[in-house]
Design a protein around this nucleic acid. Sequence first.
DNA 1: CTAGAATTAGAACATTTGTACTGAAAAGAG
DNA 2: CTCTTTTCAGTACAAATGTTCTAATTCTAG
Lengths: 241, 241
Amino acid sequence: MKKNVLSSKQTAILKFIKQFIESKPYPPSIRDIKNGCGLSSTSVVDYNLKILEEKNYLKRDTSVSRGIYLEAQKHVSSLIETSDPDTTINQIELDDLEFENRGDSRTITIPFLGYIAAGEPLSIPPSDKWNSNEFDSVEIPAFLQKGKNDLFALKVKGDSMIDALVTEGDIIIMEQTTQAQPGDMVAAWLNDNEEVTLKYFQIKNDKVILRPANPTMSPIEIPANKVSIQGKIVGLIRSLS
Amino acid sequence: MKKNVLSSKQTAILKFIKQFIESKPYPPSIRDIKNGCGLSSTSVVDYNLKILEEKNYLKRDTSVSRGIYLEAQKHVSSLIETSDPDTTINQIELDDLEFENRGDSRTITIPFLGYIAAGEPLSIPPSDKWNSNEFDSVEIPAFLQKGKNDLFALKVKGDSMIDALVTEGDIIIMEQTTQAQPGDMVAAWLNDNEEVTLKYFQIKNDKVILRPANPTMSPIEIPANKVSIQGKIVGLIRSLS
DNA sequence: CTAGAATTAGAACATTTGTACTGAAAAGAG
DNA sequence: CTCTTTTCAGTACAAATGTTCTAATTCTAG
C-alpha cells in the first residue's frame, strides 16, 4: 500500500524546485537539488523524484538534462474524491485577477501563453505572471468570456486534434482550471499516451469518458488517475486566408 | 569590422530559442538548436551563439547544460522584424509575431447576416445595407481581417460542415466575393446537390476541386459551371461552454 | 522482536551536452 | 586576381548530468 503523504524530504525537494525555477531561467539538475536540499546522494534525489512523478507532482522528460518541471494541475482523481491537503504543496496560487477591459466592453485581452501539440505537455505559467509583458496578448470578442476567469490563449500545432474539430494554427481560448463539469470540453493530459487531447468530459462510475467533438468518432474511457485536466476550452478562433 | 546586422542563421536561432522556450519548460540544448534550425554542426551553433551573446541578444550560464536564455523578449522580436527582409528563415514560422500587437490591439465590427446551413442557399443582402440597423453585429479580433473588405458573419446550423472542421453554432467570418484564388477556403453552392459547402478551392483544367479541411476525407471534383462561389472564409469563432 | 518494506549511501556507469580544434569553404576587400 | 576575414563542417574530447546497482540502514506492521 502506497502512502498518500509526502515525506519531508519530498516536500523540501518540491519547494526547492519551485524556488529554483522561479529564480532561474532553467530547471535544476539532479545535483542542484542534491546540494540545494543538503542530500547525500544523487540516487536519493532520483528515488524521490520518481515517487513525486508517480504521484503527479511533477514531470520529467527522460533523456533531457534538466528536463524536470512542476505540474500546474491537480489530479482528476483527487478532485473527484476528497482532495488531500497534503497534495496542495505545488499548487499554483491563483489570484482572482481580472483582465483589463480597455473601454470597449465587447472585447477582452488575454495572454497568449504558447503552443499546444499532441506530444508535448502544457506548461502554463502561474497566472499571477500573465500580466507581465513577457507574454504576447490576444484580443478576443467579449462574448467568448461568459463570466470565466483566468482565460488564456494557445496556438495549435499539428493536426492531432482534428477529431475535436481543431486544426493547425487555430487559437484556442482556455480557462485555467483543474475541475471540469460533465459536458465541458477540456484539455486533458493522458498519462499513458503522454499527450494532450481535447475532448468532451464525462464521468461514469469512477471512470472518465472523453468524447470527441466529431460525433462519428468513438469516445474513450479511462481510469480517473490516468487523466489530468489542464483546463476548459471556452472558445476557438481560426484565421484562414 | 563587425557587421551590425544578424545573419539569417542567427535570426533563425533566436527565433527557434524563443519558440522552444515558449513551448517547453526548459531551454534548448545546442543540439536541439542544431536540429531545429537544420544546421550541420554543433560548432556552428556555438559559433553563432557566441556572436549573439556578444551582441547581447541572449545570455548563457557557462558550465550549466541548457543554460541559455533570452535577454529581452521585446528586443528580440523587434530586431527580427527589422532584419534583412530577403533572408528567408527556414524551418521556423515567424507568424506568431502577429500576436505582438499589445498596446494597440483592435477589433472590428462586422454585420451578422444570418445563418448558413446545408440545404439552404445563402441570401446575402447588398453590402451597402449592412450598416443599417436591421442587422446585428459581431465584434471580431482585427487580426482576422488581414486587409479584407466586405466581411460579414454567419452562424452555422447543423453538423453538415463537419468535414470542414466546422460545427453547429460556429460563427464563420466571410468575405463577400464571387472570385476565389486556389487555396482559399470558400463557401460554394453546388447546383446539383442544392447545398452550400465549405471547402478549400482549387482548379484543375476546367474543373473545380473542393477539398475538405479534414485531410482524411476525399476531395470532390466538379465542372466549373455547377458551382458558384459565395464568398471566402477568412475566419471562424467558436464559443464553447 | 522480526520480517518485510522503504529509504539511504556510495559508487560506477551511460548518456547528454558544451567546448575546442582542425581545416575547408565562402565571402569581402583591395 | 590575392589576401584576409568570416563562416562552416566534422570530429574529438571533457564536463555535466541522469541512471543503475548493491549493500547498508531505517522504518513499520504484526
